[in-house]
């Protein structure tokens, strides 16, 4: 009943809606961007049809872009790391509550995010601004004012805030279906807490960690709103460069070239990361 051919056919059948949808509404549009990236900019800001490699040549010589990419990567790594460290114990906490509580806890994570993201970012500005709530409070005790906004730390903090659910949910999904009996077994067999965590819990929740890290890292690298509103002049990220090129600079061709290279690098990084985590996992559970 479970022979390979029906299995193959079923797999294709299940994959086909996604394949068709993404083929039409993701891949085809993406090919368009690829085509744009070989064109030029007309004086009125439209795409000038003139095939060349000029955009890519410019990009590789563009120090501004590579500085921006470096800063974005660094910020995204910090955000992902902190988010992971904070979320794992939280997901563990959530997954070990009674089923009734679990539902409540998951929703409590989501509720703040059913407001508008701009409104949430601005709420941070109200809190941390030069004349913000915190500084007004400090003022009561003749302390401050503290400069808490318009710097990289403000951006990092607001990004952590915004990305938390994207880490918590996959981790929770992985931990929720973890077979807790195994922990007991490991302990019964004399494993220490750290050993139990490292050899039993971690390998089995690795898919959750991988998924969560990617879901956090990727949007963070490409963000533009948070750095715009809270970053001051010190934080320019790839997203800001892209919105400049697709926005007021009206240079879609150059913007497209940036996007292609950026996506290529990101995809490469993710595949490497997958490979690394898989090797760790295989090392843990041979066979």
């Amino acid at each position: 009943m479970y022979n390979a051919r029906t299995e193959q056919r079923r797999a294709w059948l299940q994959a086909s809606p996604a394949l068709i949808w993404l083929g039409f509404f993701f891949l085809a549009p993406l090919v368009l961007i690829l085509i744009y990236s070989f064109q030029g900019r007309a004086d009125d800001g439209t795409v000038l049809w003139n095939w060349s490699l000029a955009n890519y040549q410019k990009l590789f010589a563009d120090g501004a872009f590579w500085r921006t990419l470096w800063l974005s990567t660094w910020i995204a790594l910090v955000v992902t790391a902190i988010t992971l460290v904070v979320s794992y114990p939280l997901a563990f906490f959530m997954a070990t509550r009674s089923p009734k509580r679990r539902g409540l806890l998951v929703l409590a994570v989501m509720i703040p995010f059913w407001t508008n993201f701009l409104v949430r970012i601005y709420a941070w500005k109200v809190l941390l601004g030069n004349n913000g709530v915190v500084n007004r409070f400090l003022d009561q005790f003749d302390l401050g004012p503290l400069q808490m906004i318009n710097n990289p730390s403000a951006v990092i903090m607001a990004l952590i805030y915004g990305e938390l659910p994207y880490m918590i949910l996959p981790l929770y999904a992985a931990l929720e279906r973890f077979d807790w009996v195994q922990l007991e077994a490991a302990r019964d067999l004399g494993a220490g807490r750290f050993q139990t965590f490292w050899h039993v819990l971690l390998p089995q929740t690795l898919p959750g960690i991988t998924a969560g890290s990617i879901l956090v890292f990727v949007p963070t690298v490409g963000t533009f709103a948070v750095s715009d509103i809270l970053g001051g002049t010190s934080v320019n990220m790839v997203g800001n460069t892209l919105s400049l090129q697709f926005g007021s600079a009206s240079n879609w061709a150059y913007g497209s070239a940036i996007s292609m290279i950026f996506m290529l690098l990101l995809l490469g990084a993710i595949l490497l990361y997958f490979k690394a985590t898989r090797e760790v996992n295989d090392g843990e559970n041979p066979g």
Partner: peptide, 22 residues
Amino acid sequence: DTGLYLPVIIPDVVMAVSLLGF
């Protein structure tokens, strides 16, 4: 499997512009 990650990594402004063009 790999292709599925593309929509995750595409910056949203790129996706938006590409869809408008499409």
